[in-house]
């Protein structure tokens, strides 16, 4: 226990913010930045792909389905290797490890989030789209004004769940030496050499605390959304 406290005292800052502000930001802060950036960038893409999966346009269906199936059949680590070698080929210059990781995370996350979006759309009553189309709204207007606002709202708990797995997935960035939390812990361990158990207990604890708190948040949000969904049923019962 004393060891753990010592490690936290000596390396706590390194684990939480890396060399910041003297050097680049790292540690837990970078982990959260990676996860958030991954979510923010993959969200619009996943809406596009998720809608494409159930589009009336067969080409859109084929392309988006192929994307989802391929990405979901590959390990994230492999996507990182691919991004590491392919992104420089495409844009013609080397890229930082950070960019590589973000690209890989966004591709990976988009495939999973797209399925969340698709499921949320399919979960809406068919009558919503029918009513909108019957009024003369186009397919896109119906998506934008009627389907997506409801589906994405209902999908908030699932999206947060994806975010939790994203937080954990950022740890693979360690493999290409991006200085996020796992890599920081790895560095600390390399300096101390004799205390791997303590270092990795700290690492596990940090991930646990973050993800556990996020999980509680999901439960809370689920409850709120559940109550707001109960309203129509209550009104019908009273009717």
């Amino acid at each position: 226990m004393q060891d753990i406290i010592d490690i936290l005292r000596n390396y706590g800052l390194l684990l939480t913010i890396g060399q910041f502000p003297e050097g680049p930001i790292g540690g837990l802060a970078l982990t959260l930045i990676l996860a958030l950036t991954g979510l923010v960038l993959s969200f619009p893409l996943s809406v596009l792909i998720g809608v494409g999966r159930i589009s009336p346009n067969p080409v859109a269906v084929k392309l988006s389905t192929a994307f989802v199936y391929i990405v979901r059949a590959l390990p994230l680590l492999m996507l990182i290797f691919w991004a590491y070698f392919i992104v420089p080929l495409i844009i013609g210059r080397t890229v930082s490890g950070l960019t590589t990781v973000i690209v890989a995370l966004v591709v990976y996350e988009t495939a999973y989030l797209a399925e969340v979006v698709r499921a949320a759309i399919l979960a809406l009553p068919k009558g919503q789209a029918e009513a909108s189309r019957s009024l003369g709204l186009s397919y896109f207007q119906t998506m934008k004004d009627i389907i997506l606002p409801q589906a994405l709202f209902n999908a908030i708990p699932s999206i947060l769940n994806q975010f939790i797995s994203l937080v954990k997935n950022t740890s693979v960035a360690y493999i290409i030496s991006v200085d996020e939390l796992t890599y920081a812990a790895y560095q600390v361990n390399a300096q101390l050499l004799t205390k791997p158990v303590q270092v990795y207990i700290i690492l596990a604890a940090i991930y646990f605390i973050i993800c556990f708190s996020l999980n509680r948040l999901v439960k809370l949000v689920e409850k709120r959304i559940h109550t707001s969904r109960q309203a129509p049923i209550a009104a019908e019962a009273a009717a």
């Binding site: 009024l135 186009s138 009627i146």
Partner: peptide, 20 residues
């Protein structure tokens, strides 16, 4: 089809109001 439908009022059994 959108223009056509805009001239035909349709009322459903399940109302299908937009709850949001």
């Amino acid at each position: 089809v959108n223009e056509l439908r805009s001239h035909i009022g349709f009322v459903f059994q399940q109302f299908n109001l937009f709850p949001h």
